[in-house]
Design a protein around this nucleic acid. Structure first.
Length: 482
RNA sequence: GGCUCCAUGGUCAAGCGGUUAAGACUCAGGCCUCUCACGCCUGCUACUGGGGUUCGAAUCCCCAUGGAGUCACCA
């Protein structure tokens, strides 16, 4: 049995968006599941679009996404070089071979002549003008140093067909395909050509890519046929959309992998979510690790229609990953966010982590959830009023004074002990415990909601600060009631 | 516009000729509870339309409609 070989072939044009990453992921999953090889190839034949640093971004993205290529520019597997610009000589040689075999021909047409072919909508189909040039004529013009391109020679009639692994049978009339340029006048190959040659030379037998190539694939097959090469299997993937009309695009900076990372999404969650966009596992379990994805990935589950990116669901999934984290792990990933908040360097991050883990879906929520610890000041005393618990400002004030007396002499400043003492007090005063806890939490924090209860906040703040705030709040209430 | 595809709730989706048409996210309500979360429970919402085929169609066929892709010396 031949080894399955798939590839991810991005062009270094800047961002790595989610759609690209998903294509990459599927190619990786498919190869790994089959025990095959996943290769990375850089397609930089368009020098005009080349962006500095983009190649590093690709490496970095794959690494943090947990997708490890078996071969690539940085990992020779014997099929290199893996960067198209370093393969320039190869293409021309093969293009000439294809000309010999009748699958392509030289074309000397000028831009002006090409423009004259366009219809009123600006759409032109090349008329095979140069196909009729005699061998001698071609040689004469080549020798004269005329600029030329090499075009694919597509049969004028008939139908080209193939079977796609997800879309099934595809058939395209030959007359609808154009004699595209294979070698540009600068000597570089176009994607159309480089792709076919490289895939063949690198023994790629499963081509996994976006649907935009679905209808041009017959052209590639025609080349494989003309060369006498074995055609690969194809798996085309529907796009990921921003909404019903627009797909996610690099141009508008939608959904970049790195942007999500910066927003506090975990790479595992992003990968997990995008795996589910356009593919669904057999079972009902949606939270899947890379290992599980490799195991469960299945072409059958790939959907043919475009899917809309739903950040709300990815956010939920991210929260699920966070909930499973150990305190240590959480502190590790959350540290940058703590450091960015007002409490940077203060408080015990581990103690906070325990409270935050069930309350945070994405890490960037952290500053907002902890800033109150440093921002204590005048607040609206109306918050002490609580109809359901039957708490009035007067009662709050009275109870706060009582709890202050209890806590004043308390030396064991832990959540557990403080909670017990507050409950005792409630019993002694024969009131509901909430009538103690609620005002206490407010008095200590000054905000309507906090990540944790009154005594948890007290422990976090420490005795000195807690007592200070209690004093402050009592004074605030007294002033309001005066 | 030509060509190639696609079509189940707001979103992701299961379903492959006979189902009460799964599940998840979102949203709403409830329980739990010292706030907020977590957790648990309940609920809302779908087969684009029309024709066939068949005893029977979300599932097969045709047409319409809607959507996507493509038609570059870009990939």
């Amino acid at each position: 049995m031949t080894t399955v070989r798939t590839r991810f072939a991005p062009s270094p044009t800047g961002f790595m968006h989610i759609g690209n990453l998903r294509t990459c992921l599927y190619a990786y999953l498919f190869a790994k599941q089959a025990g095959g090889k996943f290769v990375l190839r850089i397609e930089d034949t368009d020098q005009e679009r080349y962006v500095e640093g983009a190649v590093d971004l690709i490496y970095r993205t794959l690494k943090t996404a947990g997708i490890e290529h078996d071969e690539g520019p940085d990992k020779d597997g014997g099929y290199g070089p893996y960067i198209q610009s370093e393969r320039k000589d190869i293409y021309l040689k093969y293009a000439k071979e294809l000309v010999e075999k009748g699958g392509a021909y030289y074309c000397f047409c000028t831009k002006e002549r090409l423009d004259s072919l366009k219809d009123d909508k600006g759409i032109a189909k090349y008329d095979k003008h140069c196909l009729s040039l005699s061998k001698e004529e071609v040689q004469r013009r080549l020798d004269a140093g005329e600029h030329y391109v090499i075009r694919q020679n597509i049969p004028a009639e008939g139908v080209s067909e193939y079977d796609d692994m997800v879309f099934g049978h595809i058939s395209v009339p030959n007359e609808d395909m154009e004699d595209n340029i294979l070698i540009k006048s600068d000597g570089m190959p176009t994607y159309n050509f480089a792709n076919v040659v490289d895939d063949h030379l690198m023994a790629i037998n499963y081509v996994i890519r976006g649907v935009e190539y679905l209808s041009s694939t017959p052209k590639y097959n025609l080349m494989y046929d003309a060369f006498g090469w074995e055609r690969p299997h194809y798996m085309h993937l529907s796009p990921i959309m921003k909404d019903a009309q627009r797909k996610l695009s690099k141009r508008y900076g939608d959904a970049n992998f790195e942007d999500f990372l910066a927003k506090g999404y975990l790479p595992e969650a992003i990968v997990n979510y995008i795996a589910l966009l356009g593919w669904s596992p057999k079972g009902n379990e949606e939270k899947l690790s890379m290992a599980q994805l490799v195991e469960q990935f299945d072409v059958e589950g790939i959907s043919k229609s475009p899917s809309i990116f739903d950040e709300a669901k990815m956010r939920w999934l991210n929260g699920e990953y966070i909930k499973e984290m150990s305190v240590e792990k959480f502190v590790e990933v959350a540290k940058p966010y703590f450091d960015k908040s007002k409490i940077a360097g203060k408080y015990d991050y581990s103690a906070l982590a325990k409270l935050l883990i069930p309350r945070v879906e994405i890490l960037s929520e952290i500053p907002d959830k902890v800033n109150f610890l440093e921002e204590f000041g005048e607040y609206d005393v109306e918050m002490f009023e609580h109809k359901k618990m039957k708490i009035t400002k007067e009662m709050a004030l009275a109870n706060l004074k009582e709890i202050e007396k209890v806590y004043e002499n308390e030396s064991v400043w832990t959540d557990e002990n403080l909670k017990a003492k507050a409950s005792e007090l409630a019993e002694k005063l024969s009131c509901k415990s909430g009538q103690i806890f609620l005002p206490l939490r407010l008095a200590l924090t000054g905000v309507a909601s906090t990540p944790g209860g009154a005594t948890e906040m007290a422990e976090l703040l420490g005795k000195e600060e807690s007592m200070r705030r209690l004093d402050y709040s009592i004074a605030l209430l007294e002033k309001a009631l005066a």
